[in-house]
Amino acid sequence: MKIRASRSDNTKRFIIFLTIGIALLFIAGALTLVFGANTMSPKTVFDSLFSFNESDYDQVIVRNMRLPRLIADIIVGVSLSVAGAIMQGTTKNPMADSGIMGISSGATLGVVVVLAFIPGAGRFEKMGVSALGAGLVTLLIYTIAFVGKGRITSDRMVLSGMAISTLLSSVTTAIILKFGLMNQMIRYTSGSSANTIWKDVFVALPFFSSGLIVSLIISRSLTVMNLGEEVSRSLGANVAVTRTLSTIVVLVLSAVAVIIIGPVGYIGLMIPYIARYMVGTDYRLVLPVCAVYGGAFVVIVDFVARLIHPGMEYPIGILITIIGVPFFIYVSRKQEGDRFYD
């Protein structure tokens, strides 16, 4: 009876928070279309969306600069939040995040390798090699975590991920300097969606949509997995398949985010943490809330970044790190006395 009441309560909270999140995302999205280097009238925004005139410069700004940027921000926010939630679920560590654990660094290294050795490569190639880089890092993290006495622990995984992240950042920097890729890579390392064009969005969309759909499909299995491997097996869940699929989803979503905006950390740490606070640990509820609030968060941060010095562009990666680091410290301190899911 108590369990049923709790589930019903969580569902109510889910509906309320999801509605608030969608409203927030909608308002923030509308604001980013109206305000920017120059303020547009709502009519201009409306016309650019529904009766586009490509000879009208203001409409071009809204349609070809602000709209793809808005969608890119949403894609990045959703991708990193959902990937973070899945990683935290599978590792049972609230500090797991694709940025902190080095997966984004692997994806960035993939992009650098493409730029260095295949300068004419298109966005699809970059996406593929970026995902491959992320995959190799994941393999490396698991391998290092396996070494030594005892079983894999989530703490060991996070620590090995952080060490690998530092190593890969150094290798990435070395390649950038050696190949003179500084000006091209600043785009990927500073974390900015300012130059997003429709092509970027169209390349990312299929990967993003697939990753998101698969994550929603495995959300129930993820919830069951959190009861422990023995229990989930007894409930008929295929732990190996769920683990494999969740790893692939994390890789794909991380690569999508890196290709669009660069290796931005902490989104995948903060948003899932807040989402679990809102709706509990049922991943069927956590993932949609993560998606909506992740998208809204990046859109809002990008909006604020544009207001810092109107007419100029500031990388949102810097703002996110300023918010993320205190959050990381808070979570790590809280984790000491409050074990996740245990």
């Binding site: 280097a37 120059n38 500084m182 900015s192 130059n195 109107p310 007419g311 100029m312 500031y314």
Partner: peptide
Amino acid sequence: EPISAENLRNYEGDLVMFAGF
């Protein structure tokens, strides 16, 4: 300092050059 793509036009002179590194 990065100039917003929206504002580039305001800085355009009669002649435009692009300097690469």
